[in-house]
Design a protein around this nucleic acid. Structure first.
Ligand SMILES: NC(=O)c1ccc[n+]([C@@H]2O[C@H](COP(=O)([O-])OP(=O)(O)OC[C@H]3O[C@@H](n4cnc5c(N)ncnc54)[C@H](O)[C@@H]3O)[C@@H](O)[C@H]2O)c1
Ligand SMILES: NC(=O)c1ccc[n+]([C@@H]2O[C@H](COP(=O)([O-])OP(=O)(O)OC[C@H]3O[C@@H](n4cnc5c(N)ncnc54)[C@H](O)[C@@H]3O)[C@@H](O)[C@H]2O)c1
Lengths: 261, 261
DNA sequence: CCATCTTTGTGCACGCGTTCACAAAGACAT
DNA sequence: ATGTCTTTGTGAACGCGTGCACAAAGATGG
């Protein structure tokens, strides 16, 4: 998930496993829904179903937080909502800046799911002078020149990058230098950051490619494994059908037609 | 990652590990950049750095695809681009539909990264009659009534859901019934799908919450562990101040403002 | 043709995450 | 109070993913 140095060794003694942390928001969402329906308690089985996970996994996850359940009954919904919120740090307000107010950045700014969990959009930042001053989601777009001031003045520790890939590393460096220590990156680039800074990335293109992989697998299965299997086990030299691009890269490094930039 | 039944047991004999599949697009991106610079070959060390991973991991990943490197030299960039593309199923065209053309859906439709990897947006679909017919990213928005026709006629096997959470499961069901077998879900809901259908989800809110967790950790470390440790080890019964959840869930199922610990 | 040097491919060990399965804890009825 | 019944919390086994470390492969130079 995280790209840069997100190495989290056995530093944290009473550490909650990363996999568990990633599921806590899922549980929280399910619990919030139950809370809104005024459901007082819930069993691990029910909650697990609602969150789309295995009940044993859910119980083990909760066991890292402490013993918050009652045997024979289940978990108190309100109490658990509070405990998970506290563990995730949602009992406090997190100011966030979004850098790059284009198609995606504007959509993010308009997204209601931000504020609903204690994430407050402190500022929208863009380098394009034409954008500067425009109102997006009730906030004025501010110029990149102000980035450092904004971050420091609002005590921003979380930054969202929605600029083109080419600008991402530079924006990242400036955010980090200004004091941001957590970055959510939507640009398709590997960001390098110093130790102590967390980076998480969201990459639509990668998700689609993973889906395509499985999709191809399914299609292959349907029309018999034989073809795929035969091709796959062919020795390297022969594995290429004649229709394939010349294995030796021509004088001009040509990319296969189907795979443009 | 995937939500619904994405259980991929030891079915596939010569199966590529899921973790490896998830990294292939990363390698591909780095290789494409090298290709554009007409770099002929690359070592595992260089490529690993560019992709932001460990070189041993990269070599092991490639070993699942076959032996495509040359010892003492490295990997042929063009050849590797082709092999990974083929493995990921990118040598063919994947028609995609986007359902829910609001803030996010429109941004996705405008995203150039779609077409650049062989993913063709076949149609944009929305339930709002006011949206229908509007042009977004050069395509007309079509009404949900046409969903089944569109999917079947265009042989769409990948669907993107960007509707509000409440509509996501229904849209999902219709997509699946119409023949879609891979879904990328942006709505914050757990989708349930039949076996054989892959679901991947992208949830901004979850990403932010994970960042907040680590952010809280970092902050806690700085001002000494003592406070956090003391609070955490409080017996369960006492951990609950009297001021706490008598909490009838208000109209907003929100988090408590500030909990005295 | 041989020596040297570079880089791959992988055997192995280790740690994390998942799942099973069950003892113990507690609610609830009698 | 006692027994029954439900559900938690967790020990233990297992499988997957990661990273080390090195032998083998092949390029390159003499
Ligand atoms: N639109 C999507 O659905 C989508 C999906 C996945 C990934 N992405 C990625 O997200 C990023 C943004 O996509 P988009 O469609 O919104 O692009 P866009 O071109 O619409 O918006 C980019 C914005 O960033 C601003 N910008 C450029 N350089 C900047 C800098 N140095 N500092 C501050 N702002 C700067 C531009 O002025 C522009 O407003 C891209 O990297 C894209 O690959 C987009
Ligand atoms: N905007 C973001 O940055 C963002 C980020 C994360 C998640 N999300 C999620 O993505 C989804 C869309 O977000 P948004 O900001 O674009 O919302 P939006 O309200 O702007 O757009 C939703 C669109 O879906 C359409 N729609 C509603 N019901 C439909 C149905 N049954 N069939 C087809 N179309 C239907 C609506 O007409 C509307 O155009 C939401 O679930 C949101 O939680 C959005």
């Amino acid at each position: 998930m995280a790209t840069g140095r997100t190495h989290r060794p056995a530093t944290r003694s009473r550490g909650i496993p990363e996999a568990t942390v990633a599921r806590l928001p899922l549980y929280l969402r399910a619990l919030t829904a139950l809370s809104e329906r005024s459901v007082p308690t819930v069993s691990s089985e029910e909650l697990a179903t609602a969150a789309g996970v295995n009940s044993a996994k859910l119980r083990k996850d909760f066991s890292y937080l402490g013993s918050y359940g009652t045997r024979g009954v289940g978990y108190d919904v309100e109490y658990l909502v509070y405990q998970i919120s506290r563990e995730l740090g949602l009992t406090q307000d997190w100011p966030v800046v979004i850098v790059g107010i284009g198609n995606l950045g504007a959509a993010l700014a308009n997204y209601g799911g931000f504020a609903s969990r204690g994430f407050r959009v402190a500022a929208l930042i863009d380098a394009d002078p034409a954008q500067t001053g425009k109102m997006v989601a009730g906030l004025p777009v501010r110029h990149t020149d102000e980035l450092e001031d904004i971050v420091e003045h609002n005590q921003v520790s979380i930054g969202v990058i929605a600029t083109p890939a080419g600008a991402a590393q530079e924006v990242c460096d400036r955010l980090v230098a200004a004091g941001v220590t957590s970055i959510l990156n939507f640009a398709p680039t590997v960001l390098s950051v110093p130790d102590g800074v967390d980076v998480r990335k969201v990459d639509l293109s990668i998700e689609l490619q993973i889906l395509a992989f499985h999709e191809q697998r399914k299609a292959g299965e349907d029309l018999g494994e034989a073809v795929a299997a035969a091709r796959d086990t062919l020795p390297k030299a022969v594995a290429e059908p004649v229709t394939e691009p010349a294995r030796r890269p021509g004088p001009d490094g040509d990319v296969p037609a189907v795979m443009p930039a």
